[in-house]
């Protein structure tokens, strides 16, 4: 079990992580969601012993990453956001190198990486620098797993990876979870939240919510509609002046309009927009998703404590 208690970390004048507390259960696939600069990487680097927190404590089972960093390094597999293996060594050499520095062999833990490694094994004599993005990612994951870690820490593993590879990667994580490995993964992609057991929404160094994705969505308390007209930008400006608007923001080809009144008539919104010269006005029912929750939580800064 991983417990993070009241962790803070500052860099000169920026407070990157503010009083963060999270509990992660053994065997969980835990997502850390947030935009760039939210403090996700800093938090992960404190968990994996690369950084010392200014305040607070972290426990990985019974180990403290500050005091027991030597032991922590044996139980953690870390995959940084940037590909950071030896580009001038081959796939096989990289894997063997990391196995050896952990005092193990590729054969010993091969069963753990088999599914992933088999996909890149035909190219095992190719230099890591000459691999495609998806292959690099598989190699990095294999190297992070080769010493059979209890905890896998992945920092934005899917950033800059195509949609198919992203889906594949999440399947790999699911199967690793089934093998009993606890996984913490950070991502800026809100749509990946559904794939996690639990997620923490992070923004400005703070955790705004931490729960199962479905629970977070359930707690979205306002009615929400998708709105589209012939002039989306003008509609955005007009809706901001509408009396029952709680929030409105662009979302794909629609605007998401959040009402502060629980009971209202869609017709009133349509009339309001038509009065302001909008043509082809569409208002339709939608379900809030995790991104709507994220916007709500970060803009209105209401803490939901799970």
């Amino acid at each position: 079990m991983i417990s993070i208690k009241n962790i803070s970390k500052s860099f000169e004048d920026i407070q990157a992580v503010k009083d963060v507390s999270i509990q992660i259960e053994e065997g969980e696939l835990f997502g850390l969601l947030g935009p760039d600069g939210a403090g996700k990487s800093t938090l992960l680097r404190m968990v994996n012993s690369l950084m010392i927190p200014d305040e607070g404590t972290i426990r990985l089972w019974d180990l403290d990453p500050v005091k027991d960093y030597k032991k922590v390094r044996y139980i953690i597999g870390y995959m940084p956001g940037k590909f950071s293996l030896y580009t001038d060594l081959t796939i096989e050499e990289n894997l063997e190198f990391f196995a050896t520095v952990f005092g193990t062999t590729v054969e010993e833990n091969y069963y753990l990486i088999k599914d992933i490694y088999q996909q890149i094994e035909p190219f095992k004599n190719r230099r890591a620098g000459k691999l495609s993005g998806g292959m690099k990612q598989k190699l990095a994951l294999s190297c992070a797993l080769i010493h059979k870690p209890k905890l896998l820490v992945l920092d934005e593993p899917t950033t800059g990876v195509d949609a198919v590879s992203r889906a594949e990667f999440w399947e790999m994580l699911q199967s690793l979870k089934e093998k009993g490995i606890t996984i913490i993964v950070s991502t800026p992609y809100m749509d990946e939240a559904q794939l996690c057991d639990r997620v923490a929404l992070m923004q400005g160094g703070e955790i705004h919510a931490c729960d199962k994705p479905a629970h977070i969505v359930q707690q979205f308390q306002y009615p929400i509609r998708g709105v589209k007209t012939s002039n989306i930008y003008k509609a955005l400006l007009d809706l901001r002046t509408y009396k029952s608007t709680h929030n409105v923001y662009p979302f794909g080809e629609f605007l998401h309009w959040v009402s502060k009144e629980q009971l209202f008539n869609d017709e009133e919104v349509i009339i309001f927009l038509k009065d302001r010269g909008h043509l082809n006005v569409q208002v339709r029912d939608i379900d809030p998703d995790i991104e709507d929750c994220f916007i709500e939580l970060t803009q209105f800064n209401e803490k939901i404590n799970a």
Partner: peptide
């Protein structure tokens, strides 16, 4: 620069 130093740092080396 290529980040391998950090990767080595999380190993028991």
């Amino acid at each position: 620069e290529i980040g391998t130093a950090e990767q080595i740092n999380v190993t028991p080396v």
